[in-house]
Each structure stands twice: as structure tokens, then as C-alpha cells.
Simulated assay, not measured.
Amino acid sequence: MRLPVLFLLITVMIDAMGVGLIMPVMPDLIRDVQGGTLAQAAIWGGVLSTVFAVMQFLCSPGLGNLSDHFGRRPVLLVSLAVLTLDYLVMALAGSIWLLLLGRVVGGITSATQATASACMADLSAPKDKAANFGLVGAAFGLGFVLGPLVGGTLGAFGPRAPFYAAALLAGANFAFGLLVMRETVTDRIRRPFTWARANPLCAFRAVSNLPGVRPLLWVFFVYSVALYVYPAIWAYFTQERFGWSTQVIGLSLALFGVTVALVQGGLIRVFLFRLGDRGTVIFGLVLDAISATLIAVIASGTLALILTPIAALGAVVVPALQGIMSRRAPDDAQGELQGVLTSVNALAMILSPLMMTTSFAAFTAESAPIYLPGAPFLLATVLLLGALALFLRARSSVT
């Protein structure tokens, strides 16, 4: 594997790990700096997560446009350097306001995945883009698995230890990138930076005007809202429905993440070869809808564990969609496109937990018309079928 590609994959993996590393210790860290009860810490934790997602939504198109003008290398390296300092600040934070500032900065610099995806698009032949985006997804999935495991282990040394570890990882990758990363934006594809296109709404408009991309952005958004049912509700649902312990919940999430990494890192090439990009998206949407429906209605925790890796096969959707849209974007707009996709994903990350937790509460409360803890997964099924309908409607523009 070429060293620049390895750097890109490590960057994405560390981005995912950095979030997962700190998740197990955030309740303890918030109480350490703020005091109060676990319930109060949970409220602040929700605020910090929302702020992170909002800043990612607002700033990702701007950083994508910056990478189209100044290049992928400086944007990636500056983001990693700032992220390293951000983790150190959070490790040393003595107030909740410093933690809040840390999440603001973290959300701004979290565009590393978008810029890395744009750089991967630069390095890929058109026919290889979807498969190579799968590698990026696999790296993110691996980081998603490793982060909480390492963070939980380091948490035994105190709630600040994972932040130092995250800073060390980001700093080491910055040094690696400084040595091996070459610039992929040449004068042929370099585009002037304008503040107007850094605005998320203007960036959406610009990307939406690309031939055949607008309906695919809607597919991507609806799909993302549906799939966030897993991180938003899985721990609550499995505890309510099956009585799972935190260890079993963690095992199921790790199983899901490992399967996603295997699918996007290798199996997706088989799907793309057999089904093509369009067929792969349809297969993934149908499988996800079936899996969500089954999870909503089954009463066996064992069956839920068996379904977990099967559901993860639907992870072929995102890289296949990315590949279709990337081929429709000119070379000088790859960063903008990936920035918009990151913003769309962040918007889904803001909206989906509210929808899923509300539906869960409504159908598990004593006053619920029927007891149905799987209601969020049925809602996800409806959204997935909606995404499938949107995609089939756009079939004339998708090859």
C-alpha cells in the first residue's frame, strides 16, 4: 500500500478512535470538572455532542473548499495539529466551558474524513472510487471498534488519560503525514476559494446543481438518519428488550464495527463487481430495511446478536453512493462534495437521536398505547424504504 494512502486511512481511523476513546470517560470527566449527579452530567454530555455535530455541519463545506484551493495536505496537517492541541486542552480542562470550547474546536477540525475522502478521490481512477471509499469506511469502522475498547481500558488510569492518548495518536499521525503525504491538488484542478461556497447552504446548492447529484444527496441524508438508530438507541433498546449487560452491548457494537470494516474494506469489491454501483446501493438498502424490521420485532437476544453482522452488510451503501457522486463531480470540486456529505451526515447525527429516542420513550412509557421498544427500528425501516424509493426514482441518472 502506498504511504500516502496509508496516512489517509490512519487519519480516518484516528478520527473515529478519538471520538470513541473519550466516550467511556466523559461522564466521569464532566463530574470531575463540574460536580453534580450522573443525570446532570448526561445533560452536559448531550450538549457537548450536539455542539460537536453542529460545528461539523457548519464548517465541513468550508474546509472542503479550502482543500480544493490550498490543497489536501495543508488542510489535513493543520487539522491534525489543532486536534492534537485540542485533546491536550481537554485533558487539562478545569471547567465545563473549556470542555465546551474543546468540542467546538473538535467539531471544526473533524473534517479530516471529508478531506481524506477527497484526497482518496484524487488518487483513484473513476472505476476504483467506490471501492477505495470503502477502504475509508473500513478505517472509520475499525477506529469505531478500537476507540471505546482502548478508552475504557485507559479510563482505569483516570478520566483524563484517554485524552492524552488521543493527543499522542493525532500528534504521531501529524508527524507521519508531514513525512509521507504529497499534495494531490494540482494547478489543473485548483479552484479559487470563496466565502460564499464555504456557507453550508451555498455549498449544498452548488453540489446539488451537479448533474444527477441532488436526488442522491437526499438518499444519503435519509439513509444516514435511518442508520443512526443504532448508535442512538441500541444500548437502551437491548437493555429494555433483552436485559443485556453493558458488556454484551459493547460486544455487539464491536461485532457490528468489525463486520462493517470487513465489508467496506474488502467484501464491497465483490458486490461492486457483481452488482455494479447501482445494484450495490439497492442491495444494501433492502438488506438494511429487512434487518431493522426483524430487530424491531424479535424477542430473542441471541437472534439479535446473529442479526448484528448480517445488518452490517448493508454498509455497502455509503461507499457505493460516494463513488457515484464523486464521478459526477469535477476534479476541482471533490473537496467541496466530501465536505457537503460530511455536513449532511452531521445534520443526520443531530436529528436522528432526537427522533429515535423520542419514539423509544413514547412506546416504552407506562402510558404508551402499545408496548413496542422496537418502534425506532420500525421508523428506521420506513426511512430506509423512503431512501430506496428516492434512489429508484433517480435511476435514470444513476449508472
Score class of each variant (00 low, 15 high):
residue 171 G to A: 09
residue 216 L to T: 12
residue 213 V to L: 01
residue 198 A to T: 03
residue 189 I to Y: 03
residue 208 S to I: 07
residue 215 P to T: 10
residue 203 A to N: 09
residue 222 V to D: 11
residue 231 P to H: 12
residue 213 V to S: 05
residue 232 A to C: 06
residue 235 A to T: 13
residue 231 P to K: 12
residue 235 A to R: 01
residue 183 E to Y: 02
residue 217 L to W: 03
residue 218 W to D: 11
residue 191 R to A: 13
residue 175 A to D: 00
residue 201 L to W: 12
residue 201 L to G: 03
residue 231 P to G: 10
residue 193 F to Y: 06
residue 189 I to K: 10
residue 193 F to I: 02
residue 204 F to I: 15
residue 191 R to K: 15
residue 213 V to D: 04
residue 217 L to E: 10
residue 206 A to N: 14
residue 221 F to I: 13
residue 201 L to K: 05
residue 205 R to D: 15
residue 212 G to N: 06
residue 210 L to E: 01
residue 212 G to D: 01
residue 178 L to C: 08
residue 182 R to G: 13
residue 214 R to Y: 09
residue 227 L to E: 01
residue 175 A to Y: 02
residue 196 A to Y: 00
residue 211 P to Q: 02
residue 177 G to L: 00
residue 210 L to D: 02
residue 232 A to T: 06
residue 213 V to P: 11
residue 187 D to H: 07
residue 178 L to Y: 05
residue 182 R to D: 09
residue 228 Y to M: 14
residue 222 V to G: 08
residue 217 L to D: 08
residue 224 S to W: 07
residue 193 F to R: 00
residue 233 I to V: 15
residue 213 V to M: 08
residue 215 P to A: 07
residue 223 Y to D: 13
residue 173 N to P: 05
residue 212 G to V: 13
residue 219 V to G: 08
residue 202 C to E: 14
residue 236 Y to S: 05
residue 194 T to S: 15
residue 187 D to Y: 01
residue 215 P to M: 09
residue 217 L to P: 01
residue 219 V to I: 12
residue 215 P to F: 03
residue 213 V to T: 07
residue 207 V to N: 12
residue 232 A to I: 08
residue 216 L to M: 13
residue 172 A to T: 04
residue 179 L to H: 12
residue 215 P to E: 03
residue 229 V to L: 07
residue 227 L to W: 07
residue 174 F to Q: 09
residue 173 N to F: 00
residue 188 R to Y: 01
residue 184 T to V: 04
residue 214 R to W: 12
residue 186 T to Y: 05
residue 219 V to F: 08
residue 173 N to A: 07
residue 209 N to T: 06
residue 217 L to Y: 06
residue 201 L to Q: 05
residue 181 M to L: 15
residue 178 L to W: 06
residue 222 V to C: 08
residue 178 L to F: 06
residue 236 Y to V: 10
residue 180 V to G: 07
residue 197 R to Q: 05
residue 179 L to K: 13
residue 191 R to Y: 11
residue 228 Y to A: 05
residue 178 L to S: 13
residue 178 L to R: 14
residue 186 T to N: 03
residue 198 A to N: 00
residue 236 Y to A: 12
residue 196 A to F: 02
residue 183 E to K: 08
residue 193 F to K: 00
residue 199 N to V: 14
residue 205 R to N: 14
residue 197 R to H: 04
residue 214 R to H: 13
residue 212 G to C: 11
